[in-house]
């Protein structure tokens, strides 16, 4: 029996939300291999014609962390109370942060970059977005190796609970994907989004306690309290360094937030992706 496909205006809306999710899940499952292929493609295009390849992933955090150390030594910048050697704390934070920031920046341009291909071939655009978000996992892995080296250098041993940290990575990945779906859509209609995003990301990093401890007083203190990214970064970091989780409530709320953003982003994307093809 051949499958019957129908195309109509507002195709998905007419079907209701339950069959919408069925469709989405079927599509994601069905296109796992495509997603992997697209991931490989993006990977090659970044690293193949590059001398240093993935070693760039070492250099970027080393430079930022080095800068902060210089600022600190010169008395310009206070890290706050950090119990472990600062480079470990900071690079670990950077590694988590860049999963979010690099992921978001690459996903936001993923549809536009695929441009002409989208209007010529019908394939899963979700795979395209997921594959570009996954790109940020490569520097992440490299940076985790760097952290491992630092553990040896500073003769600090991580908590045994480091084994659980991949599990604690899931929410930040989901948040990145969810926002990535929405931003890639918006950017293909209005190109300002991706330009604004790179500016905003740098700004946002300084506002989030990635390279410094959570501020207890001042303007940033209440802001941090409501910053989900802070929890999504600091909890896995705390787990690795100390083996404890001190801010359960904030973390769980942030996890909930991530999953909601992911769900909303995915549905929005599914409802509007063919509209987007026309506007690219």
């Amino acid at each position: 029996m051949n499958k019957i496909v129908t195309y109509e205006p507002d195709n998905s809306i007419k079907k209701g939300y339950i069959s919408l999710w069925k469709e989405i899940i079927w599509e994601l499952k069905h296109n796992k291999w495509l997603t992997l292929q697209l991931f490989k493609r993006d990977f090659s295009s970044i690293y193949k014609q590059s001398l240093m390849g993935v070693f760039w992933a070492f250099i970027v955090p080393l430079i930022s962390v080095g800068t902060f150390i210089i600022l600190n030594r010169s008395g310009i910048f206070e890290f706050g109370e950090i119990e472990v050697p600062y480079p470990i704390y900071a690079i670990l934070g950077m590694a988590f942060w860049q999963v979010f920031s690099t992921g978001l920046i690459t996903t936001s341009i993923s549809l536009v970059k695929a441009g002409s291909m989208l209007v010529k071939i019908n394939f899963s655009k979700k795979s395209l977005v997921i594959a570009s978000a996954a790109q940020s996992l490569i520097p992440f892995i490299v940076q985790m190796i760097l952290v491992g080296v630092l553990f040896v250098v500073y003769q600090v041993s991580p908590s045994i609970k480091i084994l659980f940290f991949p599990f604690f990575m899931i929410p930040i990945i989901f948040l990145t994907l969810g926002l990535g779906f929405i931003l890639s859509l918006s950017n293909s209609v209005v190109r300002d989004i991706s330009s604004a995003l790179s500016v905003f990301m740098t700004f946002f990093m300084f506002l989030t306690p990635v390279l410094y401890a959570k501020p207890k007083i001042g303007a940033l203190a209440p802001l941090t309290k409501f910053n989900p990214i802070y929890y999504l970064i600091s909890i896995p970091r705390e787990l690795i360094l100390k083996g404890t989780i001190s801010e359960w409530k904030g973390y769980l709320l942030s996890v909930g937030f991530s999953f909601i953003v992911f769900g909303v982003g995915l549905v929005l994307f599914h409802l509007t992706e063919t509209r987007i093809t026309e506007r690219i």
Binding site: I4, Y7, S116, K120, I121, T274, T277, E278
Partner: peptide
Amino acid sequence: GIFWPDKGKITIKGRVGALIAVGAGFH
């Protein structure tokens, strides 16, 4: 299925293959 119609309805039975832009998607 790249674009959806703005009016009307298309029904297709079976897997569609297109020889439209060969080499599109090559890296």
